[in-house]
Nucleic acid binder design. Structure first.
Lengths: 193, 193, 193, 193
DNA sequence: AATGAATGAGATTTCATTCAT
DNA sequence: GATGAATGAAATCTCATTCAT
């Protein structure tokens, strides 16, 4: 019955479905309330498959966050690579700060969870570092290294406030600040990326 | 029943000692690995006293984060209130972004944990909102509302990157960016705080 | 301050208030969910007074059930002693079976709890036996020993069914059955009470 | 996911063994002293399996009492269905009231516990109601509805007294009373079962 | 390759009781 | 005589992980 031929997995997309389900569960309750059972139930897979595909919870979470970072990075990249002029690049940055595309409520929650978890897990810390590096590389297509760092901080910090603030972001204000930072480039010290 | 005499607790500081121990445990392992036992052991109190003083883990964490926010708020406030001139105010902002005083590694870890937890707990969400509001009020002593918002985002976002970046923050770069944002004030749209 | 004179309790009715509160708590949640704290809170007395007045939970419950039995016995007794003729005695028995006076919902619940508890506590077993004996003595004022035993079983069993049955008791039916039992006296074997 | 094959439990009778163990523990100490540990130890199963098989103590107790009611109902039913004549039916009722078969000391204790618990748990209340209904249906095979109700009350009430009385039941007395009630049928009002 | 029944380690929580005042 | 802060023993419950199939 079993022979020597390579067994073919009977549900090839299952691994990723589990990771997506894990992100859903994290978004809903936080890492601290994430359990194997919830993930399995959400993914519609048997409980045993979680330990079959992953080496415990830490491994599963690390891979789920890696998947999140990959998705977010691509969005970031797409948004910035599409810009054909300095003005369009600035607009793209404003879009990343204000737009719901970059950070839905679910995404913001997941990013918070990833940052928090990264402080206690080296694999996720590496994922996070790689993400930050890639963000800056995308920004470096259009801006000097120093400006890229500053814009990155704004892209990080402003949506965080937006998440908890009652008042919505003022798009004109964001555009003005981004422009001011970009315009300051000549006055900023040299900086290696 | 027979009078209004209040019993005197045998150990008046114990409540706060437990909260501090909780923050230590969170900083070390994250909320997701924080347990009553670890907190009790760290605080040197019997396990039972945790549920005597607090209504379960959620309550305890909410109060611990409130204590954290209070401490951080005061530091923030002290730093900004001390500034006597626009130049000193800018320097204070640079200090908040770069200085280890504002955010030791432990503090940064705790802040990440608080943000993450706030997405799943209304009490902590309220604490977080109140903290953001107070930050902006302190900034409003020296800056227009729009500038205050932008600086707040920088103060939030830049140290986050610093936490995961290999390279340390370039203080001159930060100073340049802060100055650019502050100088842009006349060009920014009106904004209510 | 303390001297040698006898200390006078500063709240003489408190003991009984605690016992009544205990019965309330038992009626609401059952013995299995009865705690010192609930009783103290219900009675409006300090927690410590429970262990001051009683030797632990078993003692407290035993005394509470004794109080219940005393109250119920007196009602039973009053109902039967008031009867001046055989017909009135029969009517009194019907009243005890059907009437809400003998057994409100709360009373029935408490009696069930007492019987259940009596199987595991000798003091309450004694209380229960004494109650049954007194019931029969009251019935013996009007009926032969054998009839008294049979009526006692009906007074016990019928309200139990009433407690759980959807349909209410048929008073005429009860009266007919009681009359049949009473009328059978000459045919019943002699029985010592 | 891949098929409909059902996993076979390693120990198919375990669920029922746990319920029987629960009844043993209840009979010995009462619901109020029944704990997961005692049941697990008595059943010879690991502690964790109790919450694996049951949704908490309430669920476990409800199912244990349902098992008790089922067993008792069948005995009741067997006893009454075996009667081939009115005289045999009367004898069967006397047997149910007096015989140890219907109610050993353990059974009586458990029934008390069930009634007490039923006042605080809707599932057990339903079990109890269903039991009472089935008892009456068995009695209705031989007696008019009114007589069935009266006999049911006697079957309920008399063994309760027997449980606490010092003196044993007088079988002749019981037979006489049952006969009197049965003979009164023509004089009793019509009653729907 | 895949599963889910089963478990034990440990988490949270409850609560009777103690005892300093 | 009286109290309620405090505790430890034990209760319930959760869940990652194991493992026979």
């Amino acid at each position: 019955m079993s022979g020597t031929r390579r067994e073919i997995p009977n549900d090839p997309g299952r691994r990723d479905r589990i990771l997506d389900a894990a992100l859903d569960v994290i978004a809903e309750g936080g890492v601290h309330r994430t359990t194997h059972r919830k993930i399995a139930s959400r993914a519609g897979v048997p409980l045993g498959s979680l330990t079959y595909y992953f080496n415990g919870m830490d491994d599963l979470l690390a891979l789920a966050f890696a998947r999140l970072a990959e998705t977010m990075s691509q969005l970031y990249r797409r948004t910035l690579h599409g810009a054909g002029s300095p003005a369009e690049a600035e607009a793209a940055v404003v879009e990343l700060i204000c737009g719901p595309a970059y950070a839905t409520e679910r995404d913001m929650t997941l990013i918070f969870e990833m940052y928090a978890y990264a402080n206690h897990n080296t694999a996720v810390a590496a994922t996070t570092r790689s993400w930050l590096r890639r963000s800056r590389e995308s920004l470096a297509l259009h801006f000097t290294p120093g400006v890229a760092r500053a814009l990155d901080a704004l892209i990080e910090g402003w949506p965080m406030h937006r998440r908890f603030d009652a008042t919505p972001l003022n798009r004109q204000l964001v555009a003005g600040v981004v422009h001011a930072v970009v315009s300051a480039a000549p006055d900023l010290p040299d900086e290696q990326l």
